[in-house]
């Protein structure tokens, strides 16, 4: 039976291509700006191209949310063969995307769009899309997604503070990071807030800390490992989690261009939705 409502998210969900097709989810790209050049995340530029350019670029890129008009166009198109839409987006405290979606939705009359502030980023958003897509009605989908928002966690290890600091989302001080020493922060995104949970000086010390932190939050409904150009480490973490929790599937996903602008290369994340 075909679902009567549409599911929309944005490119920061890092939605695997296979899920996009399987669940028929529309993805609105955010944008990455290298100087005057604008690229739509995952459309005009893929992850490999992005990180290659990031490494070669002397000036850091910036990012921007989709415009309300882009959302309005998509919603208008979806309105033709759907009776409603759930639109799940990057947390309001991290981006203007939700606001743009909300304004865009106002301009499509007679079409119900439930714009959801996921209060999170990357694959927990993808899991929320999956949850929504498996619901029979829009009302059920919205309820099921909203119930899970406070349970979404993104535990992130950044290889350097440089990118997130330039993006202005986190300061060194707020990440408990000294201004001089190269300390790697372990950050937790929960309920729209970015909080430091630990700081370490080497990756090999940080990775077990991430897994320990995750273990304390088990039971979980969904878990994934995400990475920015660090596939081997991500696979190792995923295998470690699978061996401790054989009941869990642990997909490995890639951090996209827009989120990558803020995390920088070699970032790793254990991301999950608590039960």
């Amino acid at each position: 039976m075909k679902r009567s409502f549409a599911v929309v998210t944005d490119s920061t969900a890092d939605l695997p291509d296979a899920w996009r097709e399987r669940y028929d989810i529309d993805v609105v790209p955010l944008k990455v700006l290298f100087g005057e050049e604008t690229f739509r995340d995952g459309v005009d530029m893929n992850n490999e191209e992005f990180f290659a350019r990031l490494a070669a670029s002397s000036k850091l890129p910036t990012t921007s949310a989709p415009s309300p008009g882009e959302f309005a166009e998509l919603y208008a198109r979806l309105a033709k063969d759907h009776d409603g839409c759930i639109s799940i987006h990057l947390g309001r405290s991290l981006s203007a995307t939700v606001e743009a979606a909300r304004v865009g939705a106002q301009s499509v009359e007679g079409f119900r769009v439930d714009v959801i502030d996921s209060e999170t980023v990357t694959m927990p958003m993808a899991f929320l899309c999956q949850v929504a897509a498996e619901c029979a009605t829009l009302v059920e989908a919205s309820a099921a997604v909203k119930e899970r928002i406070p349970k979404c966690r993104v535990l992130a290890l950044l290889d350097t503070m440089r990118y997130i600091e330039m993006g202005g989302r986190v300061s060194r001080a707020s990440a408990m990071i000294g201004t001089l020493l190269d300390v790697k922060p372990l950050l937790l995104v929960a309920e729209g807030e970015i909080k430091p949970v630990d700081r370490v000086r080497t990756r090999s010390r940080a990775i077990p800390r991430m897994v320990e932190f995750f273990d304390q939050d088990v039971p979980v409904e969904h878990v994934a490992v995400v990475h920015a150009q660090a596939p081997e480490e991500a696979e190792r973490i995923a295998a470690d989690i699978r061996s401790r929790h054989p009941d869990l599937e642990v997909p490995v996903g890639q951090i996209g261009c827009v989120l990558g602008t803020h995390t920088g290369p070699k970032a790793l994340g254990v991301v999950y939705i608590k039960k």
Binding site: S64, A65, S67, P68, G69, E70, A72, A96, E99, A100, V103, G104, S107
Partner: peptide
């Protein structure tokens, strides 16, 4: 302006 809005002030 709706198509090109950037940032909160732009919106």
């Amino acid at each position: 302006s709706l198509m090109g809005a950037r940032g909160n002030s732009g919106v």
